[in-house]
């Protein structure tokens, strides 16, 4: 392994369209690559399956958020209304769960939404100010008309020369090495 390979972030390959990007992603997945990503200006149908992506764990985080919101909401109201500051309201029992349902419901939704937003950010490792791919001048096209695959050097299958030739075989029109930093 050369010093250059160790210092590089990985490879960025440009493709001419959505169809060839999809095919290349499938081929990379079949070749056993794990740490690669596809970049296009719009979602491509079937890309998740082609890349071999697993179902996101986000749903479980949302569920956890929802449950903690529900439990927290009910406990908070039980403690404040029946224990800490008992106050009889319109002759109803101190712990009247019916009255606590709206707040419990709202907190369930709020915490589930927190789970969704912050869980998504955490899973995507966001926010971050800089990403190595921005070192490439071409990468800006990914939000316009460019179709890219980036392969990280950290992938066990990665070998700069071999990966380069594989990407070229798959129809990459332009390949560049992305530097770290």
């Amino acid at each position: 392994m050369s010093a250059r390979e160790q210092s590089s972030y990985g490879l960025l390959a440009q493709f001419d369209g959505a169809a060839s990007l999809l095919q290349a992603a499938k081929a990379l997945h079949e070749a056993g690559y794990k740490r690669f990503d596809c970049h296009s200006a719009f979602p491509i149908h079937g890309m998740d399956r082609a890349m071999g992506l697993q179902q996101s764990k986000l749903g479980w985080i949302v569920l956890l958020g929802g449950f903690s919101g529900a439990a927290g909401g009910m406990l908070l109201q039980w403690w404040t209304s029946a224990i800490d500051y008992p106050l009889v309201i319109s002759g109803k029992p101190l712990f009247s769960f019916q009255a606590f349902v709206p707040i419990t419901f709202e907190l369930t939704i709020l915490f589930a939404a927190f789970g969704a937003v912050f869980g998504m950010l955490a899973l995507n490792r966001l926010p971050r100010l800089h990403q190595e791919l921005f070192n490439s001048g071409r990468f800006k096209q990914a939000s316009d008309d460019g179709f890219f695959i980036s392969v990280q050097a950290g992938d066990p299958q990665f070998d700069e020369a071999g990966t380069k030739s594989l990407l070229r075989q798959l129809g990459a029109q332009h390949i560049e090495v992305i530097e770290r930093g």
């Binding site: 319109s90 002759g91 019916q98 009255a99 349902v101 709206p102």
Partner: peptide, 12 residues
């Protein structure tokens, strides 16, 4: 269903 029950329960 809960809204219907809740308002009736509360107003009593």
């Amino acid at each position: 269903a809960f809204s219907q029950y809740f308002l009736i329960w509360y107003a009593n």
